[in-house]
Design a protein around this nucleic acid. Structure first.
Lengths: 125, 125, 125, 125
DNA sequence: GTGGTCTAGACCACA
DNA sequence: GTGGTCTAGACCACA
């Protein structure tokens, strides 16, 4: 459900944050569903609990989850947070497109890339 | 010609490297044109000369520029380097597209983004 | 009558204690009126009975309620407790005012806020 | 310039975050001014550097400061962040006013509290 | 058991 | 020297 790549150079904490954001966007996590506890996820991923705690704090700050002391953490149903995720995803995409164009890719190159993304993985979603 | 954004969180050195790659791809820098000296650029950008030195070393390693002892650094005409830039740009774009899709953007959203990039800025290039 | 907000970050026990203090101050609870039983309230609010128990103990320590062995808990008519509530409310308000001022709100901003509170909700009390 | 109260029960990190927000709102910190380094502030306040790091990360997330790797952290000139501070201050005040009213304070009590805040400390600002 | 804070100390990239 | 991440481990409040 969540896979870490320790060699990627991407901070573990970021991988966890982005992993949950992705899982939620994919519909794999529904509102008010309980998250694994900090300690449970830490031992499952072989990561220090502090790192999970930090990731959960970031997710809570983003409105993706909410935490109840003594009870646990839960997926938030916050639609504003969902919208924010989509907006930032679109912003990141626009930057990537702009950068790709500046680096010499033509409109055709880019459309080919779009098709590549949507063909090779069409059946996986 | 080269603008730094200290608040972006992107390392200064990276911004300089990418800036020159972009300028070259845009055709603003032609083969064998002389690069500003390390010291001159450092003072112009208010950046530590070591940082410029490092950026030039990276650009040279990528084949984007070449240096002549005692004379300075110059833009390379190396076509292999250009190809490498295009390939890495395409790779980055594919990752951005994949990520955008995972975060909930549909094929239509993505095509709209492509059109947005190519319409609003058509005249600027 | 008593509504919990799990996402607020405020401990459940505190929300219950403050909820009853508010209800009493609003006149919704009269002296010697019986409180719901610990178990009943726990199931109604979907909360651990220990949490309700703790909240009632705090309310009793504050003199807001009193308990009779074998019979249950009742609203107290204690005027000293009411005075204590008002004093702590005033202290909290002073702190809030001080903080608001430090964060840049002017006397006018604050007076506007006071008017807003007393106009828009005048009819609700 | 920044004073901690270890006995207050308020997390050290929060005190630091709120302290800087307050200092900025009071005009004691101007845009692009350099913050004390994480380590320097840690030793000055006799607090673990991790705690300062966390506080700075929160301040950066709020747009109050920005950090440049290898250079340091600086006060942001971000006006949106300033507005956000004022808005949240106003929201907190409205809640405090609402709560005070519910707990039995009259409009006169509240106006007296406002005057108390603005008289006793008028000369200190 | 749950989330959350803090210290201590190592280690990394960047300037 | 600067910010930033991570582990290890103690400790606290809350349910």
């Amino acid at each position: 459900m969540l896979q870490l790549d320790l060699k990627s150079g991407i901070p573990i904490c970021d991988q966890i944050v982005n992993g949950f954001i992705r899982l939620k966007a994919l519909g794999a996590l529904s509102a008010d569903e309980q998250m694994p506890s900090v300690r449970a996820l830490a031992s499952k991923l072989s990561v220090n609990p502090n790192t999970i705690q930090k990731a959960y704090a970031i997710l809570e700050a983003k409105g993706i989850i909410y935490s109840v002391k003594g009870r646990g953490s839960f997926i938030s149903g916050d639609t504003a947070a969902e919208a924010a995720v989509r907006i930032s995803a679109e912003k990141a995409l626009l930057e990537a497109l702009h950068s790709a164009r500046e680096l010499g890719l033509t409109r055709e190159d880019i459309l080919n890339a779009v098709n590549k993304e949507f063909f090779t993985k069409e059946e996986n979603l």
